[in-house]
Design a binder for these strands. Structure first.
Lengths: 174, 174
DNA sequence: AAAGACATGTAAGCCGTTACATGATTAA
DNA sequence: TTAATCATGTAACGGCTTACATGTCTTT
């Protein structure tokens, strides 16, 4: 699964600009996918060349022109072939857990700082997803609701384990 | 955080061969980091050139020679500077959740297949971590116990959400 | 007979990150 | 006046994946 597959999926709903795609990645998809402008714009050009999408330039006053991309039949086909390809296993990479694992080598103070920072992060991400649930739950498909629940529950679990861990570390402090 | 940082951390415990490093990644670190031979061997060469590790060739009968790598003082220093660098945010990329999000476009049968496969995966990974807990809990540092708990709890949560989701999808079926 | 553990490496290519480059409007 | 939103792109580099290349020993 690459950025291209996800963009192809998004464009099934309506035409998007690169800027809007980025925004969507950071809100709706924040929990399980991300890509920056440095990926999005070159990918859109490539997709246009391949005939998967078509561009419509919309001039604006005092702004760069907007490039609105729509899905073509060929793009729809390409997305179907992605859906038929084998499911890739998920990847999770955590600098935080690596450091925690080697915690003895860094000292207890660093470990507590890292846990605190990770906890702050998890809490703010949870807030965002909770707000999204309040706003959009009814308009989401059953499958989309599972995605959102997964994000919320994973973050709750993460927060719980981190808080318990912090308590244990405090308990064993001299 | 790159493979180099993790290898540097590992070598604090004892000397390793590339083959053993790979094995460790797939067991101990499976939940939050991975790297294949294609990453490990070139990284070890590079680290040796940089003076972070030193190689000792151990000849064997009917086997390729073993290259056992030990940490040098310079490597120890390098690892410390990694620990002092800013904590990177974790990345999670899930082909499964992307597909689920676009589930309407694939049909309910595909969605159920994907959930089933994800569920099987999660259950087998949970078994492995549970076995590891039974085997090694007492010998682990408090911080390492948090890492392991995180893996186990995340997988339990994942399984729970997927099972609930499957039930909901069944309930809404014609 | 096949599969898995032991053991090391290279090369090509893909994909993505980061930094660079530009600039107006609007709200705090 | 600072930050955020709107808006698009390029270029260099870094890092990892995948496939290729080889071979023995042990267990099932």
């Amino acid at each position: 699964m690459t950025a291209m597959d996800v963009i192809l999926g998004l464009l099934h709903k309506r035409p998007f600009t690169g800027y809007e795609i980025r925004h969507t990645f950071q809100t709706l998809f924040a929990f399980f996918f991300d890509a920056g402008y440095g990926t999005i714009y070159p990918t859109l050009s490539k997709m246009e060349k391949l005939g998967y999408i078509s561009k419509k330039a919309v001039p604006q006053e005092n702004r760069p022109q907007k490039n609105v991309y729509s899905l073509t039949d060929k793009g729809r086909e390409q997305f179907e072939s992605y859906l038929e390809s084998p499911l890739e296993k998920e990847t999770y990479k955590s600098d935080f857990l690596v450091r925690l694992y080697f915690g003895e080598l860094a000292g207890a103070a660093s470990v507590r700082t890292w846990i605190g920072s990770q906890l702050g992060d998890a809490r703010s991400r949870l807030e965002k997803l909770t707000a999204m649930k309040a706003r959009s739950w009814e308009r989401m498909s059953a499958a989309q609701q599972i995605c959102l629940s997964m994000g919320i529950e994973q973050l709750c679990t993460s927060i719980r384990v981190l808080e318990e861990g912090l308590t244990k570390l405090e308990g064993s402090r001299a």
